[in-house]
Design a protein around this nucleic acid. Structure first.
Lengths: 235, 235
DNA sequence: TTATAAATGTGTCACAGCGACACTATGATA
DNA sequence: TATCATAGTGTCGCTGTGACACATTTATAA
């Protein structure tokens, strides 16, 4: 066989630097927060950055696994919701050269991880409104802004915000989480109509105190997908 | 300085194989078609694949540029609409090892490129319903399916389908394109209401024949963004 | 010249789902 | 037992889509 073949030599091209990062949201103390990590390495040592890193090509079967692995290193649990946000690329965004970061968008209940995170000093829940006043690595400010917009959009036409709540939750809790995410109030009645029509939730027999009348508890039916509604809530 | 620093050595990790591919849609002869390329190289030589390739880290400023460059090599023009779809990754999807492909989603008017493509024998518009009966490279069948679903969703709540039409178009043409994309009929009246409320289009003085009464022509106002409606058309 | 077909464009009613808001229900507390 | 706080319901109005009849304008053929 000739040495001139059509087969591709893996080292022929310079490959871009490829990383996976996640924007992990939660709602805690009536504020939208994201998980940030204080960087221990160059570049941007000492700044806050999104949790993430390189793919381990010997053990990660997909980039989803990379994202989950990196998040679990920081939170010790898996997020309740994970989806791809977008890739961000550029010749200037990393001083080491052309780089691509595939960014995931994740949700978790604050209760699931709070005690664990409080024991680590380089991992914190940071209020999304305080991001602009901090030193943030790479283009992560822009990434966070886009992730926030996506979350806000999704909150208007789907039930994703339930993944910021524990297994059992009430209408009041869900209403509060949605309002925190989108930054405006919604009608309790509209939310109840959606809960009933979505057919995503089951009621729990035991009710729970809430400062007034006992509240009905709900949980997500096992195995159901997120329902998308045909209309947005009021913009 | 010690040689033991925290700075990252770019060659320390095996980087995944990274490519950029595009699903370029058009509507032609009342059918939804995508641009496919007959592969001239291994792997999957001889099969049909999506147009794409490696980033040129010396000249591409972002992956968007890579996608546009690769599409222009095949069509000789830039698509009218381009957005990221999603990254697809895995240890098995490419025989050369762990690979990631960042997939873009693009739209163009058939008229813009048809004459150019007809002169090339390894680049073709392929009817999306015929994809399953062809030999398709990598996981591109799955990618195409997801791109199609995204396009169908977008057609229900936005005006993206206009980017499958030439600069000047009529309501009848837009209705036909939307119906081809979503695979069902819509109400002309609903479409006109949307055209009027979107404030994205301007009317053209000159009307055009269409087999009956002369039809009003529209064009996209320069510089406007796609409008998203708060409701979907009927599912 | 006139009738017909074909497509464009309009008028309008019904329906669904969200917003608004008054009203009822139930548990804690004084 | 009265009051407060939160949970939950009833219902009217509004908006945008679906449906469909009707009017308009052009080409074509009798």
């Amino acid at each position: 066989m000739s040495t001139m073949t059509n087969s591709y030599d893996i080292n022929e091209f310079k490959n871009p630097l490829f990383t996976v990062d996640s924007v992990l949201f939660t709602v805690k103390d009536d504020a939208l927060k994201i998980l940030m990590v204080k960087r221990a390495n160059e570049p941007f040592i000492g700044s806050w950055g999104l949790p993430g890193g390189f793919v381990d090509v010997d053990s990660d079967t997909t980039t989803d696994v990379t994202a989950l692995r990196k998040l679990e290193e920081k939170t010790s649990v898996a997020p309740q919701y994970l989806e791809q946000l977008q890739a961000f690329s550029g010749i200037d965004r990393d001083p080491r050269g052309f780089s691509v970061t595939l960014v995931y968008f994740a949700l978790i209940a604050a209760q699931e991880v709070s005690s664990h995170i409080e024991t680590i000093d380089d991992v914190q829940w940071i209020d999304i409104d305080k991001i602009n006043s901090l030193s943030i690595a790479f283009d992560h400010k822009v990434i966070i802004e886009q992730a926030k917009e996506r979350l806000q959009q999704k909150a208007l036409y789907s039930m994703v915000p339930v993944y910021c709540l524990p297994e059992y939750f009430t209408v009041g809790q869900l209403k509060s989480v949605i309002e925190t995410i989108i930054g405006k109030t919604i009608q309790r009645k509209s939310l109840i109509r959606r809960i009933e029509s979505a057919d995503m939730f089951e009621t729990i027999d035991e009710k729970v105190k809430s400062g007034g009348r006992l509240a009905q508890q709900y949980k997500v039916k096992p195995g159901v997908d997120i329902v998308n509604f045909e209309r947005n809530l009021s913009t």
